[in-house]
């Protein structure tokens, strides 16, 4: 029964990875870039929540509701300034700029909050669980992560297939120049895509911080998990990203059941195996 527990916990963790990877997947799908500061932004969200919870009387759910719009606006602004400019400055520029941003964010966090490991006091929500039997209990926060991933991905799929702006997002992903001659500003459309990506990053970052402790240097390893989820699932497919996240979470959790020290390595090896034997990913698909 312990193995079953490991499988279920893996799916919950994988759901959170998928939610977190969604932003990376969207930004790649629409703009063909990898945001190397993705992991650090999630850590910024965690510290933002920590600061709000300790310094204000806002309850945690209110912090979540505040942080997500803040991140959306931040994402839009960052796209319209740094990222849009780097898209025009040569093929390496986006990578160099987001990598620079990653280093800057890490060290600003280090300077402001020190290297100490933190935990976010999430109250009864974080500690409660559904007890299925003696050995299996599913935490509310874990379930929340998985549900949030599925709801987010369904919502984004509906947005890109049903709405005027979502349709233009796919169009701009195909051909930004032609999108501009039908009246859309590619920079604005990209800004909206980045805003959505940042909203998911904030949500995922907050759930991460309710589940486990964090410190300013944890961003890059989170980025790698998100990246692996995207590649395992298949580039440009959000359902693929969900599946990739679940596969990664499952692998880490099951291996951890036998040897906790090998969990992360096992995840990396699954990623390399996908590269070797199924480089198109589990669900190869078109953009967004």
């Amino acid at each position: 029964m312990d193995l079953l527990n490991a499988v279920l916990q893996g799916l919950l963790l994988g759901g959170l990875y998928a939610l977190f990877a969604t932003g990376l997947s969207i930004m790649f799908g629409v703009m063909r870039i990898v945001n190397l500061a993705h992991g650090d932004l999630a850590v910024v969200a965690s510290f933002l929540a920590l600061a709000l919870v300790t310094n204000t009387f806002l309850p945690l759910w209110a912090v979540v509701l505040v942080a997500i719009p803040i991140f959306s606006v931040l994402g839009y602004a960052l796209q319209r300034t740094l990222i849009q400019r780097s898209l025009g400055a040569g093929p390496l520029a986006t990578l160099l700029v987001t990598f620079g941003l990653s280093i800057v964010l890490q060290n600003v966090l280090l300077e402001s909050f020190s290297a100490d490991t933190r935990t976010l006091e999430a109250g009864s929500f974080a500690t409660s669980a559904i007890e299925l039997n003696d050995t299996i209990s599913l935490s509310y926060i874990g379930l929340f992560g998985l549900v949030a991933a599925v709801v987010t991905i369904v919502a984004i799929q509906l947005f890109v297939s049903r709405t005027r702006t979502g349709r233009m997002m796919r169009a701009a992903s195909d051909d930004p120049e032609t999108a501009s001659v039908v009246g859309a500003s590619p920079a604005h459309i990209y800004g909206i895509a980045t805003a959505i990506a940042f909203a998911t990053v904030a949500l995922a970052g907050l759930i991460f911080s309710m589940r486990s402790s964090f410190d300013p240097s944890i961003g890059p390893s989170r980025l790698l998990f998100a990246f692996e989820a995207v590649v395992i699932g298949g580039l440009g497919s959000l359902w693929g990203t969900l599946l990739g996240g679940l596969a990664l979470g499952l692998t880490q959790s099951v291996v951890s059941h036998y040897d906790p020290a090998s969990a992360v390595l096992a995840g990396h090896l699954v990623f390399l195996a996908v590269l070797a034997f199924r480089p198109q990913g589990l669900i190869p698909a078109r953009a967004v």
């Binding site: 349709r167 233009m168 169009a171 992903s173 999108a179 039908v182 009246g183 078109r286």
Partner: peptide, 15 residues
Amino acid sequence: FPSLTVEENLLSGAY
């Protein structure tokens, strides 16, 4: 736009 349908291509003009 190759990833859009015929109708979606037309609708993109109505953006």
